[in-house]
């Protein structure tokens, strides 16, 4: 079974880390990942940029709305994600628009740039 493990934390507190503190956390996390990778159990890993860099596409009655900032509703749940490689935010928004069109009903798509990406190490 494949599992996604999603990280949640207080952005204010994480943002207060010094570069050294941040590096220590990343090093400790890398050690855990290495163990998983060696066992052939590690898929792609991503560290996202802060929510301040996010743009959200929200479906409504007409054309979807493009809103600055992260997804902030609590009545919808996190259901899935895509990783796309785009030249610009505009292109990423277009990709989200296509996904929104193909997906019936309402819902939102938060477009968040990725700070650090490690491709999957799962055996193919």
């Amino acid at each position: 079974m494949l599992y996604a493990i999603l990280c949640y934390n207080d952005e204010n507190a994480v943002g207060a880390w010094s570069a050294e503190e941040d590096a220590i956390v990343m090093r400790d996390l890398a050690a855990v990942q290495e163990k998983l990778a060696k066992a052939g159990k590690l898929g792609p890993v991503a560290r996202l940029l802060p929510t301040t860099s996010a743009t959200t596409l929200r479906k409504g009655a007409g054309e979807p709305l493009v809103i600055d900032g992260p997804f902030a509703e609590t009545k919808e749940q996190f259901l899935g994600f895509f990783v796309v490689d785009c030249m610009s935010l505009e292109e990423a928004i277009d990709a989200a628009r296509d996904l929104a069109r193909a997906n019936p009903g309402m819902g939102s798509y938060e477009i968040r740039p990725i700070a650090l990406y490690k491709p999957s190490e799962l055996p193919t």
Binding site: L49, P50, T52, S53, T55, D68, S88, L89, E90, P113, A115
Partner: peptide, 10 residues
């Protein structure tokens, strides 16, 4: 830089 570029894009 990545963060900056994405903010500028926005």
């Amino acid at each position: 830089m990545t963060e900056a570029f994405s903010l500028l894009d926005k």
